[in-house]
Design a protein around this nucleic acid. Structure first.
Lengths: 279, 279
DNA sequence: ATGCAGCGATACCTGAGCGACATCGATCGA
DNA sequence: TCGATCGATGTCGCTCAGGTATCGCTGCAT
């Protein structure tokens, strides 16, 4: 099995249409048909059921699609990382959800900068749920994740810190003066439905709250009295004047971890992790 | 970058010798030289420093070696799993360290067997530290691991159970009648140095205890009064007559988890996991 | 019922590149 | 200084990737 064959198969499996897949691959349709036929012959497995009107995946095809996507990501990552490693002055891409881990991030970058042979660290500000993909296809080398929100499946991690959560409310709200609060009190506020974040697929869960994509949007909506949110303490420091943070007693603690692909061999990654765990 | 090129590069990077690598790949040496040269040209990166007497890896080459091995494993896994998925009656390979999780394993297999459309489960009895590799190159589909001993990096997991640990002693030993014991008491026994297991590389750590590879060896040595061991409770049930198990109060608890590769799409794997978590 | 449009498979051709063999040039040790 | 060893290079045959033209099947519209 070759990468080219896998690329072709994944394209067809996604399009379920030889013509469209060929256009996407920028080749003609006949070589595509032949390549897939040969792949099937070599594996001894039928991957696609085709009539002249419809193409469908077999069960084996679904398995190969899933495994194949992972392999193609890994190949793209290998190419990127190999080229990075050859640079005279290495660069390191650190993926962080925008607006989070502010102080920790600053301390980490400061501490790492003084390391001998420190690489240039590029920050890749990403949206929630993107980390995984960025690390897997080599667009990022390291990421800061927040448990239990982010998944660490397929990654090596080290715990950096654990913190409580706070509810962000309009300063004018009745509860904003409280020194602490409980989950149930926040989630039950009928006048302030909880904001909804996009899920892993990029679509929003059902619910009454506002749909938000970033902290600026969110804070604006909270200030307007349209929504509220429960989030880690550190993200609630240095708030706008018209917002208040109230510690939520029984919210699950949030753990910030540093994560990297397990087979990472970049010295810069190892250094950064060492610095991070010593903070 | 193609799989063939990656296979060639990994072979050379491991042998650090074009001739030997070519023999291992069962091709002549010249095409190998040319293939690597072209790979380097395409990546725009020097992977190997070569003189006519010595070949060494560059830093970029070391990165590609590491990433490349992972990719080759993934490709082998994809081929195996695709072919498995095409079988009329699917098979499922469950990797377990020999001698562990006895009762849990029996219950799991019994419960799964009654599932509608249950696959045939093949047990792959392996040695410690092999799980990871078996799952990654597709020789196994699921594994039972024991935290904190085994690494779950790169795998999805579900916790099945947690148990304490016991010290296994000769029945004749002075401590064997105790109802409980402490770590320090066991590790400090001068007459019974702790047995040594092979590490991830297959070599043994330094120490006075006996070198063992499996439970039969181990139990025999304990019965002979040559060593002792601390291990999970469940592995210490149904002991030989001449051995005794004493709970170790302050030993870290052992968690048994079921683990699988994150991109797994086999229905049989999903079924088995569901059954396991409901036990 | 028939003709047409859309789709995947097949036939055939050209050129790139893989792999084999022979050989070169450099380097190290005797 | 000579020979052995090792990676690079030149050359050749052949496989196979990719292109164009076309076939055969199927569903749909008239």
């Amino acid at each position: 099995m070759e990468i080219r064959e896998l690329r072709y198969f994944v394209a067809i499996a996604e399009e379920l249409h030889f013509g469209k897949a060929a256009r996407r691959l920028e080749i003609a349709q006949p070589p595509l048909s032949r390549t897939i036929a040969r792949l099937e012959r070599q594996l001894g497995v039928t991957l696609l059921e085709r009539t002249s009107r419809k193409v469908t995946l077999t069960e084996a095809g679904a398995v190969l699609l899933s495994e194949g996507r992972a392999i193609l990501s890994a190949v793209a990552a290998a190419e990127r990382r190999t080229q990075q490693a050859a640079q005279r002055r290495p660069r390191l891409v650190l993926a962080v959800k925008s607006g989070t881990a502010g102080e920790l991030l600053a301390k980490l970058l400061d501490a790492y900068r003084t390391e001998p042979g420190a690489a240039t660290v590029d920050l890749l500000l990403c949206e929630a749920h993107q980390h995984q993909k960025l690390l897997q296809d080599g667009q990022a080398d390291v990421a800061l994740l927040h448990l239990p929100f982010d998944s660490t499946v397929g990654l090596d991690t080290e715990t950096l810190c654990t913190e409580g959560q706070v509810a962000i409310l309009p300063s004018s709200h009745a509860l904003s003066g409280r020194s602490q609060i409980r989950m149930a009190e926040v989630t039950a506020l009928p006048d302030l439905p909880m904001a909804r974040w996009p899920g892993p697929g990029g679509s929003y869960p059902e619910g009454p709250g506002a749909e938000v994509r970033n902290l600026t949007q969110l804070f604006q909506l909270i200030a307007l009295g349209r929504t509220t949110v429960i989030m880690p303490e550190s993200a609630g420091t240095d708030l706008r004047r018209d917002l208040a943070a109230v510690p939520v007693l029984d919210a699950p603690p949030v753990t910030t971890v540093i994560a990297w692909p397990p087979q990472s061999r970049l010295r810069a990654v190892a250094d950064l992790i060492r610095v991070a765990t010593r903070l």
